[in-house]
Amino acid sequence: MSVKIAGDITSGNVLIVENQPVVVLTKEYNKSGRNAAVIKVRMKNLMTNRILESVFKADDKLEGVVLEKKNCTYSYFAPPSHVFVDAEFNQYEIDSDVLADVEKYLAPEMTDVCEVTFYEGRPISVVLPRTIVREVEYTEPAARGDTSGKVMKPAILKDTKHELQVSAFVEIGDKIEIDTLSGEFKRRCT
C-alpha cells in the first residue's frame, strides 16, 4: 500500500476504496472556496467492473496500490473465462465480464502482448497494446473513387465478429489497425 494525495492521483492509478481495488478512469480538479479544491474521480471497481464516482478534498490521503503486472499472450476461451499465458507458460484465467472492453478484440492465434494486472495474486484486468491489427471478415464493397477516409461504413472483424466503423475503401480480407483505447479504426495496413 502507498499513500496517494487525492490532488495528485491520475488516470490509471489503482486505489483501495471501501476495501475494493479501483482504477481511476478520470479526475476533475475544481477550485472550491478560499484556496481549497474538490477532486471528482470516476473509477472502475476492478473486482466487479462497476463504475463509481466520488469526491475528495484535494489534500485527502487515499490508499494507493502498487500492482504486479506481467506480459502475457492470449491462449483460448474456456467459458466463462479467457486464458492468458505468461513467458514461463503459467496460465491465468480471467472472467469474461471483467474483460468487457477487451473481449471484442480477443482472437485465437493473436500474438499481441497483453499487460495483465494482478491484485493479491489474482489477475484482474488486461490491457491490450494501444494499436492492434485485425482482419476484416465482412464489409460492403468499397465505394469507388473515395480514398479520403472520411466516409465510413460498418465492418465485421474475423473471429470476434466485433463491428466497427472503417473507411469506405476497406475491403473484405484487409488487415486494419485499431486504436484499442478509443475503439476506432486507424488505418488500413499495406
Binding site: I16, V17, E18, N19, E28, N30, S32, G33, R34, A36, V38, K40, E53, S54, V55, F56, K57, D60, K61, L62, E63
Partner: peptide
C-alpha cells in the same frame, strides 16, 4: 456531511451529494 462553499459554477451540480469514502476511518 461536508458542507461545502457556495458557488454558481456548473461542476458543483455534478459533485453535490457524491460520496467521499474515507480510507482512514472506513
Amino acid at each position: 456531511i461536508n458542507l461545502e462553499y457556495l458557488s454558481a459554477e456548473a461542476w458543483v451540480e455534478d459533485c453535490h451529494l457524491l460520496t467521499s469514502p474515507q480510507p482512514r476511518s472506513s
